[in-house]
Design a protein around this nucleic acid. Sequence first.
RNA 1: GCCCCGAUAGCUCAGCUGGAUAGAGCAAUUGACUUCUAAUCAAUAGGUCGCAGGUUCGAAUCCUGCUCGGGGUGCCA
Length: 651
Amino acid sequence: MNPLSEIRARFSTTLSGMVEDPANLLSMIRPAGDSKFGDYQANCAMPLGKQLSKSPREIASEICESVQLDGLCQKIEIAGPGFINLTIDDDWLKNGLTAALVNERLGVTQVSEPKTFVIDYSSPNVAKPMHVGHVRSTFIGDAISKVLRFVGHTAISDNHLGDWGTQFGMIIYGYKHFLEEGAYQQEPVAELGRLYKYVRKLMDYHAAVKRLPELEAAQEELKSKQADLESTDSEGDKKAEKQLKKQLRQLRSKIEDQAQAVVELKAKISEVDGDAGLARDASAHPNITLNAQLETAALHEGDATNQGLWEKFLPLCREDMQKIYDRLDIEFDYELGESFYHNELANVVSDLTDKGYTKESDGAICVFLDNHNAPMIIQKRDGAYLYSTTDLATIKYRMEKWNADACLYVVDHRQSEHFEKLFDVARLWGFGEVELAHVAFGTVMGPDGKPYKTRSGDTVGLSGLLDEAESRALEIATNQNPELTEDRHREIANVIGIGGLKYADLSHNRGSDYEFSYEKMLALRGNTATYLQYSYARVQGILRRTEADVESIRTNPGEFIFENAVERQLGLKLIRFGEALDEVLVEYKPNVLCNYLFELSQLFAQFFDKCSVKDANSEDLKKSRLQLCDLTARTIRGGLELLGIGVLDKM
RNA sequence: GCCCCGAUAGCUCAGCUGGAUAGAGCAAUUGACUUCUAAUCAAUAGGUCGCAGGUUCGAAUCCUGCUCGGGGUGCCA
């Protein structure tokens, strides 16, 4: 039991005697903003005062008289307009720490009503190389799953692979026309990757050739519009002048964007034109885009050849993808991709239609929703199904198979409108009970403040990114501890490199964009994985040097002693691990856990500085400090584990 | 056009379901290694929480308007 829920439980009794539903008031009990006010503060007297037409301080004293905090709080004070400041009783804290010490779960209680969560994350397109954009979904989803499981829920992780999309049409087309047999025999996945990129290039080329003149014409038009505006006289009208300036500014930025686009198109064209082989294939395959689409369509319609190729390619691609997941140490319970649902799509449409929810519009089958202008299209004019159709089939499956209480979609924030519509349609369809949540996240930015790209403008490939992270980590590990063996350096590099990458991602509020930087990610100081891992290693150093018998500490604990103020602070922080986990799950925010672990590590560093274990002036104090050390190490290790990050005994 | 999101220290970011004097890290300045790992700690400095109103005991947080930026916007995923 963590202090906060214990305090709330006690207040609950009192408050329910005063109002009908105290839930809102209970949420106003929180950790104190400033430690001089105590450990926790209850802010419920102020609003209650208004509600009951009494002075808040009067209410506060009524609450204080009635609430049973014996044994839990040693100090209860009313301050300011009616704050109730609470200080946790030292004996209660010590008992709690002892309970955590002897408990494998560090004293974190399991939820009383376990629920079943289905978490949909990572979800890359197979056969396309994974890139930096996939890391957030993967890390955040994995961390949320682990926290859910730890607190006692059932979390089913499901990697909703894009394994049925247009990329297979492209690869099939490539296979039929551009295959290099020898390369395919030797390294089939690499050859398929090459084919994908090759077809992509040719498609981009034709699109660029078509688009370039249009864009240049549009550019001219904008420029003449700009000239017009520049010569317009606002005749001293300030409002008109402001308007004009704004339009001009917008126009200039649009022109700039277009100029950039023109440069990119030209680069794509010249890349093909400059290569004899590419140029030849480009002119020999003028309709490659359409034909690749037709290959996809043929696959979907059950064409035997394409079906056979798909069945041959898919395992190869998945195996390749698995290598990345292995490096990241990410596992899924299920990997039911889009292809898994393709036979259900027609049923989705017919069922919704039978129930009267669909409407035909411009030949497409749509579900119109009150709060959205555009409908959700579930079948295209040409009869093909869409992402939305698959997602609906997926919800149905997840409800029927797992009877989920909640489905979480860890997906890019740009798709929020899609999910709003999806959830509305799902509820309309009859899935009203399940919690459907889009756990959205922001973009990974480069140092220029734009989405992280390579210099040439391509997305950053994930495997190269991991290589870079590890090689930089290796350099740091080698510099930091030159005396260790190369194998040890590699092991350290792996743990701090991958850990640093994950932590950099998870420690940011998922909703915001963040700037990616190898330097910051692997920085030795600050809110980084390295700092937390180092704290853990320092504890292990203490345990080694004092030759502590950790087993006996855990099975036969002594009393906790708070000699120095920081020991109490550390103890209080340790006991609040469960609060941090609860907090993570309120809005599915792993950064809450990162912050907790960082603060814990900072307190430990202070403790390390001020409170020697080895030279403690009594055996009892030494034992108490060893207990704090052991609990700190286990909390850091356990917390990092929930984030998918490892630790090292020495680094 | 319409919809959504953002703007907090020089930089990168927390905090946002209203709470007391707005926090951290980096960078800057200063101090601490014969010491359980200095991949550390202590200290100083740094702010009109985009702007203007409003709601109230109390606003970075809620509401309205504005400015700037990003994203989305019927047959891609």
